[in-house]
Design a protein around this nucleic acid. Sequence first.
DNA 1: GATAAAAATTAAAGTAGTTGAAGAAATCAG
DNA 2: CTGATTTCTTCAACTACTTTAATTTTTATC
Lengths: 194, 194
Amino acid sequence: MTNEELLLNNLARHISLEQTEIDFFFSLLTQKTLKKKAFLLRQGEVCKTENFILSGCIRMYTIDDSGQEHIVMFGVEGWWTSDLYSFFTGTPSEYYIDALEDAVLLQITKERLELLYEKVPKFERFFRILLQNAFIAQQRRINQNLSYTAEQRYLDFIQKYPQLEQRISQKQVAAYLGFTPVFLSMLRKKLSQS
Amino acid sequence: MTNEELLLNNLARHISLEQTEIDFFFSLLTQKTLKKKAFLLRQGEVCKTENFILSGCIRMYTIDDSGQEHIVMFGVEGWWTSDLYSFFTGTPSEYYIDALEDAVLLQITKERLELLYEKVPKFERFFRILLQNAFIAQQRRINQNLSYTAEQRYLDFIQKYPQLEQRISQKQVAAYLGFTPVFLSMLRKKLSQS
DNA sequence: GATAAAAATTAAAGTAGTTGAAGAAATCAG
DNA sequence: CTGATTTCTTCAACTACTTTAATTTTTATC
């Protein structure tokens, strides 16, 4: 699947478009490559784009008072990523976004997105559906953090994202699940023995 | 402020409407009263409505394997509440929604919402913005659950929702913040002493 | 391919939050 | 107003998870 097809698929899953509408949409996008460890966004900056991931792996995270990183979301090819709050309100972000692997993105700015909504209102629906899915995924995560033990959450994670677990370090998995890498190591040992 | 004004305000904050559009919107709503402890939705049922809370207090929660309740969201007057996943996909909900205080709601069904989007597309924007705000609030919560101690989360909660803390039991607060009522009681004692 | 840097493992001691149980205080239903 | 139910508090024992620190393994760099 080519890059363009990846995004076309993503669109077609939710709305049906004329070729001219597709072309117009693509004309609004710019491509960006991001080397591993390079930042797409830093805390304090305003997030100017929504980003469709063509390849690679990125994370969005905060750093707490004691210097620890906490990952609020991962993104891989086929996913959209952005700090929506900063993007929509124009206020500085609380988050960092950087690449865990070299990545290629398609970006759209807020101005161009507004233009897109105006010219092709169907896209308003498309982005609402994306948001809806992201909302639901977050709600699940909140509920799991409240209801499940660390072990249950880890098992759930590797079952749900088996490919992802292979691609990122355990340190990143722990920063997503909400415990320490040391504890994850102990967990894995315990699970491999039983 | 009358009931109708509460919702009008909520609308006006995000989109501007003609009187006929407002009237049409209101014609699609039905009012529902909910006695304390009465269910708006049970696990396994399909969520048929989005609900605007005119008065009272509701919660959305799950019950885990060991019988404990975990609250994923509260709602008070002026807020919208629903299980969006079930609402949009038509699949059975994983959640319960019930009233912590006698409540009055304005409800809109999915069919009527689709009709509304069709006749007055501005509403698509309105509901997207609502969703956006809810998304952002959830993202904050995920990050806080990862980054903060129980004590920090409690202090943050009472600072952010001082009115709410007065209206609901500590048991509900604990079920929202993710620890036991016993621990909350200990926390409060410790905080009152220092 | 050698060296440096980052990640993962292990162990031991410490802490935050849970569990269970019992009594006191508050709320609810008739 | 009364008894019944639910909520809150307190205590002590327990467990899940953290912290620190030392060692090994893996990955990155020139």
